[in-house]
Design a protein around this nucleic acid. Sequence first.
DNA 1: CGATATTTGTTGTCCTAGTCAACAATATGT
DNA 2: ACATATTGTTGACTAGGACAACAAATATCG
Lengths: 162, 162
Amino acid sequence: MPERKRSATVPFRRRAQVRKSSRPAIDLGALNGHLGYFVRRLQVWVFQDFIRALSSLDISPAQFSVLVVISANVGLSQSELAEKLDIERARLVRLLHNLGRRGLTQRLQSSADRRTHALRLTAKGQKILTRAKALAAQHEARLIERLGASRHQVMMNSLRDF
Amino acid sequence: MPERKRSATVPFRRRAQVRKSSRPAIDLGALNGHLGYFVRRLQVWVFQDFIRALSSLDISPAQFSVLVVISANVGLSQSELAEKLDIERARLVRLLHNLGRRGLTQRLQSSADRRTHALRLTAKGQKILTRAKALAAQHEARLIERLGASRHQVMMNSLRDF
DNA sequence: CGATATTTGTTGTCCTAGTCAACAATATGT
DNA sequence: ACATATTGTTGACTAGGACAACAAATATCG
């Protein structure tokens, strides 16, 4: 996609014709020493690919993580979920509001503590999540392909208990 | 229905000591199979630590990357910089506007192409960048410590040419 | 050359994520 | 019983990023 206008056959380049080739390669400089920069780039790629992968279901990465954790821990409270996913409680409220509006999640009154809501997926939510997991798996396959299986494994092990 | 793996060998835990233990460990579920989730967490940690590290200079990660690349490629244009850092041209305009307002960067008229601006740091910008690099190095040291030197190295190699 | 297309920097607009303070209802500790 | 803490919620605000449109400048190609 990046347009290559580098004609290798030009014998003598007149000054007026020397175009962008005067800056052949841009140096990242000190960024080369910062892992965070590359992590950021990877993360952006992952999000873009993930969003595209689940675009047919209109499920964002954050929404996916919420659905997955609710599904794996039925009845947990918003505070617990927020803490586990490192989301602000205030932000989780809006996430759940949207998911609830779409009929994917439910907030049930907890008998023990009337402040808390016991979270669970609706039948529709479970169905959607099943499809979402399949699409997410395809995304992960692309990531593994892009990264190389061994590197993917290494990074997984390195980051799992970060 | 949630598969609660209660170890059958646990004798009796007194209720008084068990507080919110009705939910002893929250399961990440399918997220455990997604590298992107852990990459995201690392990236958030990195940004938080980086911002804190450079808070005395009030330099964000994005601003740092802009200053670094300009410094390493004096005279490059906004388009080139935007492409290299994967920033929208429109966004870069605002970044440079702020950095310019603070007297850190300059946009000089390019003689060859009067559309483009040749970017460079001011003397003040270079001075600030020098200090920023030192603080960023401290941040990187913390990241290495947190991650382990070997893992840091492995990830660096894995992501450098992503 | 000259008409047309493309590039560059810019502005305006919109959307979403994320942060923060405050608040009512409820629960807890002493 | 009373002070304190937690839970879910709302409102307000900031910032990042996406997108369209635009004028000026340049490139392309008949």
